[in-house]
Design a protein around this nucleic acid. Structure first.
Lengths: 343, 343
DNA sequence: CCAACTTATTAAAGTTCTTTAATTACTTTC
DNA sequence: GAAAGTAATTAAAGAACTTTAATAAGTTGG
C-alpha cells in the first residue's frame, strides 16, 4: 500500500525539495522569506539551508536591504553545483542544451541526427558532454515515439531504437538520472510551464509534423499517455464520412485552388477543436506557427463554433513548436536536478 | 503557496484518515495489521486507535485467532458512528440511499422527482431524513447538469435549480458536509471503484440518456470536468460530413429498416470509440445496458478497428448505468464521512 | 558617536512521531 | 496444571519538527 503522506524519515528530503523549488522560482531568498514561502518553520529552514551551504548546494550572495534592522543574508542555488543535459532527438539533428543548477542554458549545440544510425552514435555524442562536464548529473531525452518508463515503446521508421531502453542504458553507462519523454508530451509540458497559467489546466498541443499529425494532451495538469501510449494520435480521428483527420489534411492537394485547400484545412482543424471541446473541454488548444497563422485562428474559431456552442471553446493560440519543445525538455531536466521530478 | 507534504500539525488527522481507510477496506483489523498496512508505527496506531475507540469511532469486535501467543484485539469502524445520505436527482424520481459508517446501505427510498418543482421540495425530502437520523453528517447529491464546487452551473430544462448552490444551502441549513456531482461523473467514479482496477486508469462512460447522450470521462484516475464544465458533451462531435454524434444516433429513424438502423448506431458508436482512442487512448469504454448489448460490442469493436489500429482499442463493456451511478454516489458519501474525500 | 530600535539568528522547550526495550497475557506442552 | 514459549501491549529513549524565548547584529536619529 502506497503512502499518501510524508513519513518523518522523508521529511528532511522533502524540506530540501521545497527549498530548492522556492530558490529556483525566486532565484534569491533570505531564510525568513523561505520560511514564509514554504510554510516551514524558520529554525528548520535555517538548519537545512546551513547544511546545503556547507555542501555547496547553495551560496551566499550578499545582504538584502534593511528595513530598519540587521540586514538579512541572501542565498541562491549554486549554479555550478550540478549540470543537466536536455537532448531533443530529431530526424535531421540532435539538439543539446546544457543547463546549470539554476536552470540557465550554458551551452547549446546542434549535432547530426542519430535516429537512423542507432544508439551507438547517440552514446558517442552524449559521451563527449559527460567528459567535458564532470558534474553532469541529469539527462533528458525527447524522442518522436511512444515511451514507457524510459524505454522506447514504438518509434516509426527508426528500427535501431525500437524497444531501446534509454533509461536503463544511460543510467548504468554514465551514472546519470535519466528521463525520456515523447516529443509532443514534452512540448505541452513546456508550453504549460511557460504560459504561467494555473497548474491544473487541460491543454492540447497540435503539430502537423512530417511523420503525420500528433497532439500532446494534458488534463488537469497531468500529461495523458494512454493505455497503450497511443494518446494524441489524432490522424485517425474519423471526422468525415470517409476521411479521417490525416486524410482531410493531406487531401487538400486535390483541391481546385489555394483558397479551397485552405478552407479544407480550416474545416479539419475546426472539427478537431470541436472534438476536443466536446470531450475534454480544454482551456487552450495550441497550434504550431509552421502549420497555422494567427489569422487562421479567427476562421478556426468560427468554424468550431458551428459544431459546438462558442462559449465552451478553448482559447486558440499559435506558438513556435521548437521553443516550447526545448523549453519542456529543459524543464524536465531542471526538475530532475532539483529532485522535484517524477522519481 | 500550497504545501505538497504534510506538516506535523496535520499528522494526527492524516493518521486517522489512514486508519479509517484501512478499516473501511478490510472491515476488521488488529493494531499490528493496521501498522503493517499503513506503514505507521505500532505505538502511534495504538494510541490513535485507543482515542478513536474512546470517542466511539471504532469498536472492539473480539479477539483474533492465535498463532501461538496472546490473541490480538480486533477493531472495526463503528457502524453507528455516523450516517450519510446519497441522493440521485432524476427527472421522475429522487433516489435516496442511507449509509452507515461502514458503507452499508441501511435504507433505500424512491421519492417523487423534484427537479421540476424546485429546491423547496428537495429540502422537504432531505429534511425528513435529517430528522429521522440524528447522526447524519454527510450528504451527496447527483444531478443531471454541470456542477462547479457545489453549485449547479448549467442544468437543462430545470430552471428552478439553475445556479442553485446546493452546497452552501444545505451545509448551512442542516450542518452537513455536502458534495454535489454531475451524474455521469459520479457514474464513472462508481464504475472505477467497483471495477477494482488500478487507480490511475482512463475511462469513458457513455450514456445515451433521454436528454441526449453524455459521457463521464476519467483520465489518470481523475474526473475530467473541463474548462467550462462542458466535458463529455459528445453529442456535438462532428463525426460525419454533415452530422454530429447526436444526429447520427437520432437519424436512425429515417433508416429503411431495423438492420439499417442498427448498423448506423453501431457505426456512430464505433466512431465515438475511435475518437477516444485517438485522443485519450483510455483503458476502457463503458456502455449502458439500456443502449447496447454485449453482442453489439463485437460489432463496435470491429467497426472501431477500421478507424484505428486494433491494438490500441480500449476494452468495451456493457454495464447497468443505475448501479454504477448509485454506487458512485454512495462511494462519494462514504469518502466524505471518512474524511478521505476532496475537502 | 551612542542610545534606542529593529530585525536576524541562535537557543530552549514542547510535540509528535519512530525505534527499541520491557512487560504482560495468553497458548501450548509435558 | 504449572513451565516454557510466543505474540500483544505498554513504556522508555531518540529523532525531527514547531513554537516561544533569548541573544546578537545592524540602523537610525539626535
Amino acid at each position: 500500500m502506497k503512502l499518501p503522506f510524508v513519513q518523518p524519515k522523508m521529511m528532511g528530503e522533502m524540506i530540501r525539495q521545497q527549498i530548492r523549488a522556492a530558490l529556483y522560482r525566486d532565484s534569491v531568498s533570505t531564510k525568513a522569506e523561505l520560511a514564509q514561502k514554504t510554510g516551514i518553520s524558520f529554525p528548520t529552514i535555517s538548519k537545512t539551508l546551513d547544511e546545503m551551504n556547507d555542501q555547496g548546494e547553495v551560496v551566499l550572495t550578499g545582504l538584502g536591504v534593511s528595513s530598519g534592522g540587521r540586514r538579512p543574508k541572501q542565498y541562491r542555488l549554486n549554479p555550478d553545483h550540478m549540470a543537466g543535459l536536455a537532448v531533443g532527438l530529431e530526424k535531421d539533428y540532435s539538439s543539446y542544451a546544457l543547463l546549470n543548477y539554476v536552470g540557465e542554458v550554458i551551452g547549446r549545440e546542434k549535432l547530426p541526427g542519430v535516429l537512423h544510425d542507432g544508439p551507438e552514435r547517440l552514446t558517442e555524442q552524449i559521451g563527449t558532454f559527460v567528459k567535458r562536464y564532470p558534474h553532469l548529473r541529469a539527462l533528458t531525452l525527447g524522442v518522436p515515439g511512444a515511451v514507457n518508463n524510459g524505454r522506447v515503446f514504438f518509434i516509426l521508421d527508426y528500427d535501431k531504437f525500437q524497444n531501446f531502453d534509454f533509461k536503463a542504458f544511460y543510467q548504468e553507462r554514465f551514472s546519470l538520472r535519466v528521463q525520456v519523454e515523447n516529443d509532443m508530451n514534452a512540448t505541452v509540458l513546456g508550453y504549460h510551464d511557460r504560459s504561467g497559467d494555473e497548474h491544473d489546466r487541460s491543454l492540447v498541443y497540435l503539430y502537423l509534423g512530417q511523420n503525420g499529425p500528433g497532439a500532446g494532451i494534458m488534463v488537469n495538469g497531468d500529461v495523458v499517455r494512454g493505455s497503450s501510449f497511443f494518446s494524441g494520435e489524432v490522424s485517425f480521428l474519423p471526422l468525415y464520412d470517409s476521411r479521417n483527420f490525416l486524410q482531410a489534411v493531406q487531401d487538400r492537394a486535390s483541391a481546385q485552388n489555394g483558397t479551397e485547400s485552405r478552407l479544407r484545412l480550416i474545416d479539419a482543424m475546426s472539427r478537431l477543436v470541436a472534438v476536443f471541446t466536446a470531450t475534454l473541454n480544454p482551456h487552450t488548444v495550441i497550434f504550431c506557427s509552421t502549420d497555422m497563422t494567427e489569422h487562421d485562428m479567427t476562421d478556426v474559431r468560427q468554424g468550431s463554433a458551428s459544431y459546438v456552442p462558442a462559449d465552451n471553446l478553448p482559447s486558440l493560440i499559435v506558438r513556435d513548436w521548437e521553443e516550447d519543445y526545448f523549453h519542456g525538455l529543459n524543464q524536465l531536466t531542471i526538475k530532475t536536478m532539483l529532485g522535484t521530478g517524477i522519481d
